[in-house]
Design a protein around this nucleic acid. Structure first.
Length: 459
RNA sequence: GGGCCCAUAGCUCAGUUGGAUAGAGCGUCGGACUACGAAUCCGAAGGCCGCAGGUUCGAAUCCUGCUGGGCCCGCCA
């Protein structure tokens, strides 16, 4: 099972989520093509303090929108984004009553707000990206069904829990105002599996930690029979890798975690700051609407996942050949054009294939035949970027072949034997390109739009 | 202070169980369409593969140290 994105249902997705979405989706595709049965899952963090902040923000905005009700002030800690007004309006339209005290309505408000955001922001963006999940898994159901306790009980049985006074973090500058509570906490002994400290399952106030919910979630994954767990996380969660792997191992499973470095959004050479709480950030949707799904997908896979990515918004919006996706798609369209021109069905003729003797033809055949190997290797190493590089190299090879022989050894010629063989070669190549593009979730057009007229460019 | 990731051409990056002369794109310069799509192609220039050691017949690749950059280091979620 591949778990990815898992964006909080408290706001729109940003560009970093987009990278995780593409990496996760393509990893799942790769495993699928490599013969695995693969499930995609999205974990919804719909429990905890943040969703109350969201609910409160929605109420505050609702009192602004509806005249005649006492105003509820927006806390500085509340979500400040403009989208909260949309949620508030939708809540009012659905009959929400902002004159009631927050404590009475916060639970239905929370439920409404997270569901609305999930449906109208997150799922719509995923739709634009062409990503479908097999399951959206709600953290709240874990709490409601007391699954945390069940998971903790399992760890108890295995003797992997204890009550400990945790040492303060080493080397960090402590806030002098903060009082250190030295009280024993129930922990899971992740140190036995290579973590550098044991991790608390419950807070001093008795509530379970976020980590405890994650333990329960992964226990649930294992209980459902998944044998190979893969999580795709942003590098900012790097500190959680050890403990999560440790606890999954403790429960008898195995977890692989793919970390991808964060995306620096750039525009006109200036860094764009992304913050979910602040009102000013660039959403994934804006990016998808300007650059399109195909280009955005390829852009995210143009670098290895563990390299930080500078995403130049201006460049991504350009619809010319500086965008690699056009190069790749053009190659596919060119193959299609040749096959159209040939006007015959590609035919496998072992004898005629002997006519393919040019070194470039042998090279192309090798590349086509290498596709399953490449996919297997990319799936094995969980490195989706390899597919992009395969495509670029393969198409470059074809363009070179095409241009070199366009005056001497054309695909379509008077020689029926060579023509049969070469038409088949082009057909097979196009199929290979289409397959690789399908793995990336990128379209393989048979025609490209005509080039735009020159001269109306703004400098 | 500690952990993870990164450092390869002017710029952005590939190079994956260690293998021959380290590759591509962009950019620069110079070329190629009377015929299958020139959104393409060909050529040139451009490298102490961050630094210093080590392992090896052989290192961009593995080990150690150093330098520089990114992310992280709460009983938050």
């Amino acid at each position: 099972m591949v778990e990815f994105v898992s964006a909080n249902p408290t706001g729109p997705m940003h560009v970093g989520h987009g990278r995780g979405a593409v990496i996760g989706d393509v990893i799942a595709n790769l495993l699928d093509w490599a013969g695995y049965e693969v499930a995609r899952e999205f974990y919804i963090n719909d429990a905890g303090g943040q969703v109350w902040r969201l609910a409160h923000a929605v109420l505050a905005r609702a009192t602004e929108l509806k005249p005649g009700v006492p105003r509820v002030a927006l806390d500085p800690e509340d979500y400040q984004g403009e989208y909260v007004r949309d949620v508030a309006q939708a809540w009012l339209d659905a009959g929400g009553d902002p004159s009631r005290p927050f404590d009475e309505i916060r639970e239905p408000l929370r439920a409404f707000a997270t569901a609305w955001i999930l449906q109208n922001l997150i799922e719509q963006d995923l739709e634009l990206f062409g990503i479908r999940f097999d399951k959206f898994f709600s953290e709240k159901t874990l709490h409601d069904e007391r699954r945390l306790e069940a998971a903790v009980a399992l760890l108890d049985e295995k003797g992997l829990t204890a009550h400990e006074i945790l040492p303060p973090p080493k080397g960090m500058e402590r806030d002098p105002d903060e009082e250190l509570v030295e009280k024993p906490l129930k922990v899971v002994k992740t140190t036995r599996f290579g973590d550098d400290r044991d991790r608390p399952l419950y807070k001093t106030n008795g509530e379970p930690t976020y980590f405890a919910a994650d333990v329960a979630y992964h226990f649930d994954k294992l209980s459902r029979g998944y044998t190979r767990l893969i999580n795709v996380w942003g590098a900012d969660h790097g500190g959680y890798v050890q403990r999560m792997k440790a606890v999954v191992q403790a429960m008898g499973g195995e977890l692989e975690i793919i970390l991808f470095q964060l995306v620096n959004l750039m525009k006109d050479g200036q860094p764009f700051r992304m913050s979910k709480r602040a009102a000013n950030f660039v959403t994934l949707r804006e990016l998808l609407e300007t650059a399109g799904s195909d280009a955005t997908r390829v852009f995210f896979l143009l670098r290895r996942g563990d390299m930080a990515l500078d995403f130049d918004v201006g460049l991504a919006q350009k619809r010319d050949n500086s965008n690699p996706v056009f190069y790749v798609q053009y190659g596919h369209a060119r193959c299609s054009a040749i096959l159209r021109k040939a006007g015959v069905d590609p035919r496998w003729d072992p004898e005629a294939m002997q006519a393919l003797q040019l070194p470039e033809e042998i090279d192309l055949i090798k590349r086509i035949l290498a596709l399953p190997e490449m996919i297997a290797a990319a799936a094995q190493s969980l490195e989706p970027h390899r597919v992009v590089f395969y495509l670029q190299e393969t198409i470059a090879s074809f363009h070179g072949y095409y241009t070199k022989y366009k005056k001497t050894e054309r695909v379509i010629s008077d020689d029926p034997r060579k023509t049969t063989a070469r038409v088949y070669l082009v057909w097979a190549l196009r199929q290979a390109l289409a397959n690789a593009l399908a793995v990336l979730g990128v379209s393989a057009p048979d025609r490209m739009e005509a080039p735009e007229a020159e001269g109306d460019e703004v400098a």
